[in-house]
Design a protein around this nucleic acid. Sequence first.
DNA 1: CGTCCCGTTGACGGCGCTCAAAACAGGTGG
DNA 2: CCACCTGTTTTGAGCGCCGTCAACGGGACG
Lengths: 268, 268
Amino acid sequence: MHCLNACQSVRAESHNRIYPPGALRHVPDIALGRCPCNESDCMLSEVLTASASHRKHSLIQEKTYRPKEVLFRQGMPATHLLILRSGYAKLSMGLPDGQVQGLRISLPGQVLGIEALSDQRYPYTVEALTEITVCRIGYNDMVRLLEQNPTVSLKVITGLNQTLRDTWETICSLRTRTATGRVADFLLMLTPATTTPGQKLPLPLSRTAIAEMLGITLETVCRILSRLIRDKIIEAPPSGGYFRVLDRSRLAALAGKKAAASRLSVNG
Amino acid sequence: MHCLNACQSVRAESHNRIYPPGALRHVPDIALGRCPCNESDCMLSEVLTASASHRKHSLIQEKTYRPKEVLFRQGMPATHLLILRSGYAKLSMGLPDGQVQGLRISLPGQVLGIEALSDQRYPYTVEALTEITVCRIGYNDMVRLLEQNPTVSLKVITGLNQTLRDTWETICSLRTRTATGRVADFLLMLTPATTTPGQKLPLPLSRTAIAEMLGITLETVCRILSRLIRDKIIEAPPSGGYFRVLDRSRLAALAGKKAAASRLSVNG
DNA sequence: CGTCCCGTTGACGGCGCTCAAAACAGGTGG
DNA sequence: CCACCTGTTTTGAGCGCCGTCAACGGGACG
């Protein structure tokens, strides 16, 4: 039910430019026991290089998804662990009362589904926002690798720690930022440092989806975006699927501005 | 600067009763290569049983802290990893602008400092709320154990996953609950299921500390507690260091009541 | 052309933050 | 014992942000 009809234009445009350097050089051929992504920071690549001698065929497959496609759904038995290689994905949780809570936008290089190692069920739903490519490894294979290869475990632990830190940052953001600050911060997150002013950037989320991610209402998102546009800080046509940052410094100022000094700082 | 002078009375009272069963049977003697806690769910215990043959002396020490003592401080180089055996500890982060954000109250059985495995610095500050006992293992020893013993790695990963899930729940709570709901939920978290109505429960936090934990202001905490007391739902004298739940069902109703249906549920 | 969905804008109200003041407890020195 | 000071807690008044309700415009589609 999400409005992601903007994705065509996103793909037709230059959405590749916004990915971190290196994230997009995906190697199409799947070597024996090698992760196809061939990235130095890819933990699977490292794992399988080490244990390839035991294997006849690669444990890892590359797979692509189209926009709006669901990689896996919350509550489903965990079958695979994924690493996002290119594109955007949206992580969300459904609450018992039917509400949907966005967790975060996943960027290339991040691991999806590792949290299912504990109870063998995915704790959240992952949905493709753009066209995306992932590396996939079977859940059971991954457990075996973890048991056999402590180096991977350390990498996984490091990755989880990073996720945890990001999540704490989200919490701090929720507590200290106003709705305007959250929107500004969200737009900046989608704006890589190497962006020229006014450059067209993909925004493959509907207003409703943005609202879910930021924990505010649809109307508030609209009002804030309208004000940002009126103030010539950004440009973002409705359902255009993209946006431009016209005045990055003012946007950053809004994102940095905390809400409600909250008087807790007195005992710092 | 925290007001934790209430802790004397807490210790003098019966604060032991609120701990989960089993958490308090700490074995005072430190066997060679055994975790003194001797708990079946203690990952260190299991680790060292497995690798004890290599060791001449125990890697694990028991240590106690007094209320208000700091176990470690955010930004400090990571030297030890701790497991809380008894008592309450408060995890908090300092923000760049001087504000303090409470992360969570740590209960017995939880691991403290595992997140430092990545960048070798503690990402948060841990402060004892009550008198507490912990199991301690050196950071370098822990890394070595992780490298040698995949079973521990899996346990650590499982633990991190649990922490992550709890953190997500915190996020959902922040987005969906009103201030009253947060306070009610907080009090229920400190109320074990095996509690008789009106039983005295330790509340080793000042109003300011509660406000930090819940991301609301001191005054709001006061107003909400006053109303709960006026409505005969709880009892909580100022700086008494304890509270009583008089009407658990009404408290649970307040905690469960979500704020602002937020209209996002329409697309669930 | 009607329907549906998304996006936009306005009006209104409530929750909670801010500012302010006062009650209360604990400690210290006279 | 009392005065005094410091820090915590409580309560009140005001108001700004944001959620709610409502109406409207526009594009997609049958």
